[in-house]
Design a protein around this nucleic acid. Structure first.
Ligand code: FES
Ligand code: FES
Lengths: 147, 147
DNA sequence: AATATAAAAGAGTTTTATGTCTTAATTTGA
DNA sequence: TCAAATTAAGACATAAAACTCTTTTATATT
């Protein structure tokens, strides 16, 4: 579904959204800890997200990552597209060179419905929306087992 | 979503279902051609499917793969489980150690709906059902471009 | 200005997925 | 019974994904 990079990206972004609430910045080490992710690996991922303007960063002492109100309005889909590209939108589930109704694979019609709903889901959920639920402990970014 | 192996497996199985209609057997070379797949690679995949009794095979002259009426009743899900395992059923979409309502990731509740429908889809569609539609040209196993 | 801090960048490694090639085993038919 | 055909098996090769390490650049604080 998502690449590992993309999984880390989504978790990191939600984590940053929560931690940078009052203009605070959060460092890569804390993000790694808070999301159970390999530090150097997600550092590279954050570079991409930062270049693509999905998150802000500042170097130096007290530096780190943070999100402004505009960043918080980005959707999960924006992260996915930044990291995994638009394969989710364009690829055939059985690996035909392109998904299309004109040259459909056997499960195209059934899959199209699933796909539409999945895309709707990641597009309708903004990063900001997860922030409060995470605070409330309604969900987790780390497996209990790994703590 | 599916691994490349799994994509090949599904396409090959549907192809065999169509070609082995009247007890005929179809060889690995023809399967490779008919589904645009690397021959030696899918040979290994067919070995697995054969060992797991999802398809029949005979060696020697006029040998090859074929399906009986029971084989045709297997679902796409059976192929997926044989090749990719049950990760689709058990994995968390954000990579937590296990998907569960007790320790849900941020998009667990939204994803659960998608997942349920996806599983329903691959479980409800049997290999045999695709056979006639393939005959009718209603869908394809090869990209037009690659012919 | 000097120093410490933290992200950015880039090079390198390991692991997994994908794909190829060769040989063995089985079966059919001449 | 022998040769040809065809799957089964296993070793090997390549490519991509995942992960690590080191160096550079920017910035804030002293
Ligand atoms: S053609 Fe395969 S999913 Fe659309
Ligand atoms: S916990 Fe992540 S999908 Fe269920």
């Amino acid at each position: 579904m998502f690449s590992k990079s993309c999984e880390y990206a989504i978790k990191s972004m939600i984590f940053i959204a929560q931690k940078s609430k009052d203009g605070a910045r959060i460092g890569i080490k804390d993000i790694a800890k808070g999301t159970d992710s390999p530090q150097h690996f997600i550092a590279k991922i954050m570079q991409v997200l930062s270049r693509k303007k999905l998150v802000h960063s500042v170097k130096g002492p007290n530096g780190g990552f943070y999100m402004d109100n505009l960043d918080l309005q980005n959707s999960i889909a924006d992260i996915v597209k930044a990291i995994d590209g638009d394969g989710l939108y364009t690829d055939c589930v059985l690996g035909l060179h392109a998904c299309s109704a004109e040259n459909p694979c056997p499960i195209h019609s059934e899959y199209s419905v699933i796909k539409k709903n999945f895309i709707k889901m990641i597009e309708n959920n903004t990063i900001g929306e997860f922030r409060d639920n995470l605070d409330a402990g309604n969900f987790h970014l780390k497996s209990i087992l790994s703590v």
